[in-house]
Design a protein around this nucleic acid. Sequence first.
RNA 1: GCCGGCUUAGCUCAGUUGGUAGAGCACCUGAUUUGUAAUCAGGGGGUCGCGGGUUCGAUCCCUGCAGCCGGCACCA
Length: 642
Amino acid sequence: MPAITLPDGSTRQYDEPVTVAAVAASIGAGLAKAALAGRVDGELVDTSYVIARDARLEIVTDKDSAALEIIRHSTAHLLAQAVQSLFPDAQVTIGPVIEDGFYYDFAYKRPFTPEDVAAIETRMRELAAANLPVARRELPRDEAVALFRSMGEHYKAEIIASIPSNEPISLYGQGEWFDLCRGPHVPATGKLKSFKLMKVAGAYWRGDSRNEMLQRIYGTAWLHDKDLKDYLHRLEEAEKRDHRRIGRELDLFHFQEEAPGAVFWHPKGWRVFQTLIGYMRDRQAAAGYDEVNAPEIMESSLWQQSGHLEKFGENMFLTKTPDERTFAIKPMNCPGHVQIFKQGIRSYRDLPVRFAEFGKVHRYEPSGALHGLMRVRAFTQDDAHVFITEEQITAESVRMIELLLSIYRDFGFDDVQVKFADRPPLRVGSDEIWERSEQALKAAAEAAGVQCAYNPGEGAFYGPKLEFHLRDAIGRTWQCGTLQVDLNMPGRLGAYYIDEHSQKKTPVMLHRAIFGSLERFLGILLEHYAGRLPPWLAPTQAVVMGITDRQHDYVAAVTEMLKNQGVRATSDLRNEKLGFKIREHTLQRVPYLLVAGDKEVAANLLSVRTLSGKDLGTLTVTAFVSRLQADVERRGRTVLEE
RNA sequence: GCCGGCUUAGCUCAGUUGGUAGAGCACCUGAUUUGUAAUCAGGGGGUCGCGGGUUCGAUCCCUGCAGCCGGCACCA
């Protein structure tokens, strides 16, 4: 005789076991209709779930935080059903919920075409309109394996076979079709309305490039049509902030076929790039770093010794000289910095030694990985290597983490994702050394109060790392900063210092980058700010313009004064209407537009307008410059005006 | 690197069921001297990504390659 307690605290008695759906119906017809699933004693179940004992029950409707995931998961099933109804020999594999939607991977003899996808979506709508009831049943594992195997569903059989044999397997069916699934699912396909298939792509079985490639279909699904519409609109908006588009529109950089993955920086883009470098140079100097510069091309023997050729060789550009020596274009800066450390004798009193370099590195990245500024083959790192004793690891790492987060804050990045990555399969050094370096890095992250996600097996080949990830316009995250503890490289390259007992000791080396790659960081910034770089970064901070030719001399003189005071200013003396000039420079995202008409000339003032269209009134040149200086001081920490 | 798609003027894109191409914006010239997001008129501009094949003829069909786009795999 189950007593069921509802969220409002009331309790209902039932004479015999009841389903979630029945409870909902006994409360009200509206609730019964809205029910998507149930939560029994905190656990999500189907509406068909039978409650036999006293329990707490919540009816999950579209108001519930779990609703969206259930809808997406059920829509993935609907997709699989549609595919198998149109392509009976396609095999199902997995179909998880992801951010904003779901995907489902199929094994099929040929790739799906865009036309196939359109047909699949149409079939999905038909199946949804048929409002097929969704039913759950359970089978012992081995029977489930046999069942799927007999159906020719080899991938599914393989998945089930990897589940422990004592666990019963749940199957979900709708119409003729069923699939292995943990659930829960919506009660009937009619609940699925606001979805759309987005794209087809290849994806490796079990995510391993040695395996065969499956056909992945991505879809998005929402509770209401309005949410779907909003989502599609968000995608459109995100496309407008794509850094590749902004780079072209603002004339910042370009790429061309002859140099895949290498940036041609235009004057305006390079100005921003140099501003970033200047900023980092100041911050690093204040944090005790010395800037150095090492060769970009060094003989391969050095890279042999460091282990790069063996572990990273696939990604290296090699070149043979006319005298038959083989050189490598550096893919990393560390070996160069170790060479500098090795010159002369270092005492323990000299540590930490902090070398920083804006080092341009080249990596032969797989062609399919290239992506605008985010993933290139030639890039500039704000790289640094700090040589310390093992005892200093934690303190120095904490200093680094604090510097890093403080710098991100200057750009308005307050929520940075941090991941801890430990030993990769392809690595140098003993497990004992790895154990020590992993522990030390973990301790440092804790001491700095950083919450880390875990990224197993993703460390560098010489040491574990903390990764600092930032998001792009459409939510993809990119690793920018990194902090790596390395107990291997200094020893391999013969670096040592003299300790307090006059003994040679191998230093620990911390590798770190904050922007990571200047190119990528700038790409992220362009998307983060939608091209509206804050005044301290904007390639052009102010444009001075006249209204007629009468103000020509005044505009030229003011522009000159601004430039002399370090303002990145240009003048617009073209014979165009003011509205036209305002529009053009606004589209170019210039933070300040300074207008001089006859009135301003007479009063020796400027009419100041911000990028967002705000009228700041008339100011003297001096007043404007101090306003701009205040902006520069604040950097990106201000909330941007919309 | 793998799967799919794409590549036409500086940009965004149309077009030719195979007979060597067009729009808007941009650019140039002229007129206009203009007060906070587009003044008007005229003009120039393309070996249709590159190579090979089929054909009387290829930008269009076939094929190889490159680059780009979306995923996957790989990574700052």
